[in-house]
């Protein structure tokens, strides 16, 4: 059974008299452990697709099965629960809570799933160590570099052991070297068995994935296997 199974998924935005067809019928199936890139030009519907895959949004029509559960028409609260358990988000602009330190930011998903304080601390600590930030647990986001912030976000995405890591332009706000670091981290995660979906409009970034889906005008234009994915420059300090 596939991890993700979508069929003829559409998403329309109605704005007054005008209707924007952001997705016009996308069908896909994604297996556990895949490292996949969703490529496409600006405005093609990549973020829209990612929001649907991440259960942040519900489709206008179509079918979406995640882990054997039909989630296409679930209510707000059930979706929140699914996001908490199954999905780890990594955003272009990091989206950390500005007033909380790294540890608390990483603990957040565990708080919402009701994990006890001591277990929470331990798991969050481990997740930060895993992304090479064991020493930065009490720094607030504005005391960290962009790359470090993104690694905190990745630790937060992973801490609850989700089925999928969804990253929307994760390197978009980083210089190329730091971006490479982050991609290296994804590679390691992928090798450990995590399912990773990266949304990007940069060919360079997409080339790291083992499968590339190209979107154009809200439709899947191509779905190809990348025969030799680019290895990220391994930064020693990036992954310990």
């Amino acid at each position: 059974m596939s991890l993700i199974q979508i069929h003829d998924l559409t998403r329309r935005y109605v704005m007054g008299t005008e209707t924007v067809h952001a997705l016009r019928g996308v069908s896909l199936s994604i297996e556990r452990g895949e490292y996949l890139a969703i490529m496409g030009p600006s405005g093609s519907g990549k973020s829209t697709l990612m929001n649907l895959l991440g259960c942040l949004d519900t489709p206008s029509s179509g079918y979406y099965e995640l882990n054997g559960v039909n989630v296409a028409h679930m209510d707000d609260n059930s979706l929140a629960e699914i996001r908490n358990r199954e999905i780890g988000f990594v955003f272009q602009s990091f989206n950390l809570l500005p007033r909380s330190d790294s540890l608390h930011n990483v603990e957040l998903p565990l708080i919402y799933s009701g994990v006890s304080a001591s277990e929470r601390r331990e798991k969050a600590m481990q997740a930060l160590v895993n992304v090479g930030l064991g020493e930065r647990t009490h720094h607030k986001p504005n005391e960290l570099s962009g790359g470090q912030r993104q690694r905190v976000a990745i630790a937060r995405a992973l801490v609850n052991n989700p089925s999928i890591v969804l990253a929307d332009e994760p390197t978009g706000n980083l210089d190329s070297r730091t971006g490479e670091e982050i991609l290296g981290l994804f590679e390691t995660l992928s090798r450990r068995g995590n399912t990773i979906i990266v949304v990007t409009h940069e060919e360079d970034v997409a080339q790291h994935a083992r499968r590339i889906i190209r979107i154009r005008d809200g439709l899947v234009a191509a779905d190809e296997i990348n025969p030799n994915p680019r290895a990220a420059l391994r930064m020693q300090e990036a992954v310990k």
Binding site: L56, N77, A80, E81, R83, N84, N95, L97, P98
Partner: peptide
């Protein structure tokens, strides 16, 4: 912040 919390699993 509300968006972040919701994305991470905060319910209504």
């Amino acid at each position: 912040e509300i968006g972040i919390r919701k994305a991470i699993g905060a319910k209504r």
